[in-house]
Write a protein that binds this DNA or RNA. Structure first.
Lengths: 262, 262
DNA sequence: CGAATAGTGTCTGTAAGACACTATTCC
DNA sequence: GGAATAGTGTCTTACAGACACTATTCG
């Protein structure tokens, strides 16, 4: 569902060409459009989301998704990747992003009407981001530490979240949890080469469950095109344990059979 | 992922209240936002989509999804349902709609920059729609008769389609095909009471495959909460055949086990 | 060596596809 | 009766969960 440019429009007649030239765009109500990105990664086996601390009104001091106003010649996706680069040190080239949903409540921004197109992104473990132009600070928050319930208050370890971004994070979480079942998306959290234990820990972190290692292994290997074995061994374990074989991503775009949750 | 209103924003201080009051919304680039609806139904066992014929530039004479500019106080969903009522005689109360995706290509409308939030909707078989305010005509096109390939030309039985609406219809089709697998969405195409053959024909029309009646029956009845048997019999068949039992929709929101495609 | 993790083999229950068969209704 | 559709029962295969066991590597 990635957007591809539309073919150039050719007016059907000279009359239409003149009509288009004289078109007055100001007769329709115009609104501001922003993009926001729910960027996930896995750090120390925990699912984390990137938030930036707001240093201006409104919601000053609260944490928000990286994002900002879309520019006249940008598609949503280009805008989202640009804002990601500006507000954090995230290597945008490493990020897989896809459109999530659009939030249109007229009251969602106290300044004015703002329609926001949200994206979900996944990146492998990366260095801690640093604040950029528009944000006082950027930080990978552990998702389980956030209170994503709309009615719940912020607490010591759980920051206040700006705008309707709690809902957007919830929606992004559900999207990723679902797509791990029938796509190879989990490997976006990993480097080029990984062990099956690495892959299993991604599923465990995102789904918040423990998976049976032996059965997980069998399912992954029985799904054609999911992973490709390499001849190499992974790094040795910390305190004993057999070294694991390394795998790389297969070519499958959808998984058959799927990695279904219980 | 339905949007719910956000809680009312309370400024943290008098300074912020004044800042918000003096906020100049015009400093950001504004764009026009429209909503479009891919409304599906099933007529005579064929999946159909509602299109309206354009009577103004641009794409005059071509067929487009019902939709229009979002109003200042409307959410996207309210706007989509309103436009559906205005451009056709569709009983909006009967329509299940959900957000599909947002289309942001700067060139997608030759008049000006228009960001469109698209919705997919499903309705039971209904009388032929009539044209409304903004459209010369509204018609249920059989989806299989449309050429949804971007590169393909319109032909005798297959109308020219305006803007990037081919892509939007394709995306809507994929969404519905996918959601039939793990949600009870198929019943949105049916009336309150239906036979299992009715339900099977929905799956066959949407997926474009023939399903084994006996196995389909077993899967549906083995999925808890999918359908509820009633004591009544359906109407007799046209030319012989046992009358079928009637069922109504169960309470399940997701199907376990799912109705997976091959 | 023991602890820890990788990897294999097997048993069992569930569900899907294929197909044979019975039941009911219209002509 | 014959055609058509509804509904039942059964066989086979595939896969998921549980669990027992072997293999390798660290300290």
């Amino acid at each position: 569902m990635t957007e591809t440019p539309v073919t150039h429009y050719v007016p059907s007649s000279e009359a239409e060409r003149q009509w288009l030239e004289a078109y007055d765009a100001s007769k329709y109500p115009l609104v501001a459009v922003t993009t926001d990105v729910v960027l996930f990664t896995i750090r120390s086996g925990r699912l984390c989301v990137l938030l930036v601390q707001r240093k201006d009104y409104p919601y000053k001091g609260a944490w928000a998704l990286p994002g900002g106003f879309i520019r006249p010649e940008e598609t949503g996706e280009v805008s989202a990747l640009r804002e990601l680069g500006e507000e954090s040190s995230i290597l945008v080239s490493a990020a897989h992003i896809e459109q999530l949903a659009t939030y249109t409540d007229p009251q969602r921004d106290p300044r004015m009407r703002v329609v926001s197109v949200a994206y979900v992104g996944l990146v492998p473990n990366m260095p801690l981001p640093v604040g950029g132009d528009d944000a006082a600070d950027a930080y990978w928050w552990v998702v389980d530490d956030l209170t994503l319930d709309d009615d719940q208050e912020a607490s010591e370890d759980s920051p206040a979240i700006a705008f309707d971004h709690k809902r957007i994070i919830r929606d992004g979480l559900e999207r990723v949890r679902g797509k791990l079942e029938y796509t190879p998306l989990a490997m976006r959290f990993l480097d080029d080469r990984f062990t099956l234990a690495d892959l299993r820990r991604v599923y465990e972190a995102v789904w918040g469950v423990e998976l049976h290692a032996a059965n997980f292994r069998r399912k992954v290997l029985n799904t054609p095109g999911f992973v490709i074995p390499t001849d190499d061994q992974g790094p040795s374990q910390f305190d004993g344990g057999r070294a694991a074989a390394l795998y790389s991503a297969g070519q499958a775009a959808i998984l058959h059979p799927a990695m279904l949750r219980a």
